[in-house]
Design a protein around this nucleic acid. Structure first.
Length: 569
RNA sequence: CGGGAUGUAGCGCAGCCUGGUAGCGCACCUCGUUCGGGACGAGGGGGUCGGAAGUUCAAAUCUUCUCAUCCCGACCA
């Protein structure tokens, strides 16, 4: 393409509302423009990049037997009512009505639609397994869209769905998917980690996320510094604590005054004890009513683990007003001794003795509390939010490191959750009807591009990994009005195009500085700078955007070497 | 949904406190000079100041309501 004919509205200044680099650079380099909160128009350069990512995804999906489909974005409510998600999905689901007042939603994901097709068309075990995928825009009415295209409400996503006769076959595909995902993100030039993940509200037995490491990431991931264990912090397992033998003479339960001292830190200081001798009681609201979770005083509770331990639908920290109105207990002094609600405790609590808890009375705590003697625990489990330095659950010597990551991909084994709800059954070899076993596998296309920028940029702009760059080569004539420069530039442009290399020719009558700055902002990996001075010596300048290293090469001989140079980037 | 902030030209902002009918930088157009890392000079176009109502002789400025956007939190395949 000729730059003068392309629509690339670049900006010198970042828009005031852009927070993260990828957002700023995408706007500045003319890839995207915002239309409404979390809704973006994708301009030509942006489209080129997204298509690159999509194409890589397609190739890897096809390679493992995936077949592309294109599904409706507007979906009837009945389908969602059938799966039970019409009510469960909440306000994030954008609902609409047609002229006949029938209810629809704009699809935030397509499990229902694809399951509907498959249940109608697939009847026999002979037709399974089946892997289909789609790359389309979806819409989730996020409470708080942010970071540009990284967390938009409307977003481009690849979703794959697989259908199987049994779990073994599903797991086989799951493994292939993990491999395909690794290939995809590797090809996109990303530094990523595959981590264990909580399957969240989509349900299912197990799940992995693909995380691009970046400080701007919204998720925390924990990984071992010695072995290959890596997990979203939501899920990251704590090492089971070693059994502790308590002394023979245990303290007696005793109520002590702790006026005005509510937090663990305050109580620890006031009673002159370490915070690890305190048990924290946290009250949560669930659909089953209020429940309490216990962890050691110096620990943080992980609500996701608590939710999974209880097996409830949802769970959130109970507001103080609710606790007081329902139980009459003073916040800050709540403790598990004689507490009138279900109490769940972390494994570590089981190993504690002579500890301190709230006394369920204003301005006082209990000391000398013993788990087995004084507490009635519904269930013990791992409830910890792991922290850097905690021991690895998988290997003997390693410890946790914590980093932030951008979730670009997520794979799930769904099991029969949807197939049972929606009666997606098949007949097995014995003629018996069985529910299909399913998996689903998502990649955020726009987010992948954004993540690539988060990882590949400098103060001047984007540095595209060649595989997803909008163009491979940018030809920059120093002065396009100069006859010799012009013909050499045109020749370069045409020759590279003929070689099948995506090339952009900056034929604008701009000053060189302007072109250089736009070039660095836009991040095309290879720049070929052609000007009268070097041309007189029969040379042109070839410069890498990434390393900023530039070399003079003989012209036109260098053109043949361009593919090779690109390889080496 | 709670807390905070901001809406003035395409972008970034000043003006608002103390009412008098809108300004700066960049971008854009014209001419000239310049031309290997965001040039300079001269001239020019573009805004019913987010919207509505109110106060006032007079509102970008004061009051009320409303809408939008952003940030923090809660939430989130």
């Amino acid at each position: 393409m000729r730059y003068s004919q392309m629509f690339i509205p670049t900006l010198k200044q970042s828009p005031a509302d852009a927070e993260v680099v990828s957002h700023k650079l995408m706007v500045r380099s003319g890839m995207i423009r915002q239309l409404a909160a979390g809704i973006y128009s994708i301009l030509p350069i942006g489209v080129r990049v997204l298509r690159k990512v999509e194409q890589i995804i397609r190739e890897e999906m096809n390679r493992i037997g995936g077949q592309e489909v294109f599904l409706p974005s507007i979906q009837p409510a009945e389908l969602w009512q059938e799966s039970g998600r019409w009510d469960f999905y909440g306000k994030e689901l954008l609902r609409l009505k047609d002229r006949n007042n029938r209810e629809f939603c704009y699809g935030p994901t397509h499990e229902e639609v694809i399951t509907d097709i498959v249940r109608k068309e697939i009847k026999s075990y002979r037709q399974l397994p089946l892997i289909v995928y789609q790359i389309q825009t979806k819409f989730r009415d996020e409470v708080r869209p942010r970071f540009g295209i990284m967390r938009g409400r409307e977003f481009m996503m690849k979703d794959a769905y697989s259908f199987h006769t049994d779990i073994a076959s599903t797991e086989e595909t799951y493994e292939k998917m993990k491999q395909a995902y690794s290939n995809i993100f590797k090809r996109c030039g990303l530094d990523f980690k595959m981590v264990e993940a909580d399957s969240g509200s989509i349900g299912g037995s197990h799940s992995h996320e693909f995380m691009v490491l970046a400080d701007s990431g919204e998720d925390a991931i924990g990984f071992c510094d010695a072995c290959d264990y890596a997990s979203n912090v939501e899920k990251a397992a704590a090492k089971t604590p070693a059994p502790v033998t308590p002394p023979n003479a245990l303290q007696k339960l005793k109520q002590v005054p702790t006026p005005g001292h509510k937090t663990v830190a305050e109580v620890a200081e006031f009673l002159k004890i370490p915070s690890r001798k305190i048990v924290k009681t946290l009250v949560f609201e669930t659909e089953q009513g209020l429940i309490a979770g216990l962890v050691r005083g110096d620990r943080q509770i992980n609500p996701v683990k608590l939710k999974n331990l209880i097996g409830c639908e949802w769970l959130k920290p109970a507001p103080e007003s609710l606790i007081t109105s329902q139980t009459g207990l003073p916040c800050g002094f709540i403790g598990p001794v004689g507490l009138d609600m279900k109490v769940y405790a972390d494994h570590e609590v089981a190993q504690m003795y002579d500890f301190v808890t709230g006394a369920n009375a204003s301005d006082s705590h209990f000391t000398g509390v013993q788990t087995t003697r004084d507490l009635k625990i519904e269930k013990f489990g791992d409830l910890l939010r792991v922290a850097a330095g905690d021991p690895c659950p998988q290997c003997p010597a390693g410890t946790y490191k914590i980093k932030r990551g951008i979730e670009v991909g997520h794979v799930f084994i769904l099991g029969t959750k949807y197939s049972e709800e929606m009666k997606a059954n098949y007949l097995d070899a014995d003629g018996k009807e069985k529910p299909m076993v399913m998996g689903c596998y998502g990649i955020g296309v726009g987010r992948t591009a954004a993540a690539a920028i988060e990882q590949n940029h400098d103060e001047r702009g984007i540095i595209w990994p060649p595989a997803i760059a909008p163009f491979q080569v940018l030809v920059i004539p120093v002065n396009y009005a100069d006859e010799a420069t012009r013909s050499a530039s045109d020749k370069t442009y045409q020759t590279l195009l003929d070689m099948g290399i995506e090339t952009l020719l900056d034929d604008r009558p701009e000053r060189l500085g302007v072109k250089f700055n736009d070039a660095d902002l836009g991040g095309v990996p290879l720049q070929i700078i052609i000007g009268p001075k070097n041309l007189k010596e029969g040379q042109v300048e070839v410069k890498s955007r990434k390393t900023n290293a530039s070399e003079l090469h003989d012209f036109p001989a260098v053109l043949e070497k361009v593919p090779q140079i690109l390889e080496g980037l």
